[in-house]
Nucleic acid binder design. Structure first.
Length: 192
DNA sequence: CGGTTTTGACCCGCGC
DNA sequence: GCGCGGGTCAAAACCG
């Protein structure tokens, strides 16, 4: 799979990889969950049968093998779109959300984001921040908010797929090439 | 000086 | 139609 087809969290996650936010985050508690759920954190670990999902579970399972801790994952195409408008023709491709325990709100995932909004949402005293990929022609968005029940967690939701490479891609590729590949696969959340 | 952040206003869908 | 909640716009402020 081409990197440009992947969601934006492509390039973090290896424990040996120098990670700008690694010292602030606990990725062993990272969780993926269904964004289709609406309000409540519908953490689930089954139901990976989404027909159109592009992010395959295999892409992530390497991680669970590496850290051993409870990691739930879920990926889903935005099938439920605004009521009955099924199967949108818009380019709102993928939506992926995950929750991490992090001291910092916004995680540097290698892409360049521009903040365009901030909202307080219901059932959450914390504000939700809206970011857009600042790369020209790329309309990927992401939302970042603190978990209302446990402020130690940050919920990040990605909307869409980047139509370009990560600015850090070149650097990342160099890392991969000079890295033991098997070991890399074991620990990567998502192989670029 | 150009890009980013801030923040209130605006828009839109949905339920009543 | 109206109000509510969520998402986006855009002008001003901010910053490197």
């Amino acid at each position: 799979m081409d990197i440009s087809q992947n969601p934006s969290f492509t390039c973090f996650s290896d424990e040996n990889f120098i990670n700008p936010f690694m010292d602030n985050n606990d990725f062993s508690n990272l969780m993926f969950f269904d964004v289709d759920e609406g309000g409540n954190n519908g953490l689930i670990d089954e139901e990976i049968s989404s027909p159109t999902s592009i992010i395959s579970s295999e892409t992530f399972t390497g991680e669970s093998g590496g850290s051993g801790s409870a990691t739930t994952l879920i990926k889903k195409e935005s099938t439920k779109n605004r009521g009955s408008k099924e199967s949108e023709t818009k380019e709102m491709g993928h939506r992926v959300a995950f929750r991490t325990r992090s001291k910092i709100d916004v995680m540097d995932d290698g892409f360049k984001w521009r903040k365009y909004g901030k909202k307080s949402v219901k059932n959450n005293i914390n504000k939700r921040n809206y970011y857009k990929c600042s790369s020209e022609g790329c309309s990927v968005k992401k939302r970042v908010e603190r978990d209302s029940e446990d402020a130690a967690y940050v919920i990040t939701t990605y909307d869409g797929v980047h139509n370009h490479e990560s600015p850090s891609h070149v650097y990342y590729n160099e890392m991969v090439l000079s890295y033991d590949h098997d070991n890399w696969n074991q620990h990567s959340l998502l192989q670029c």
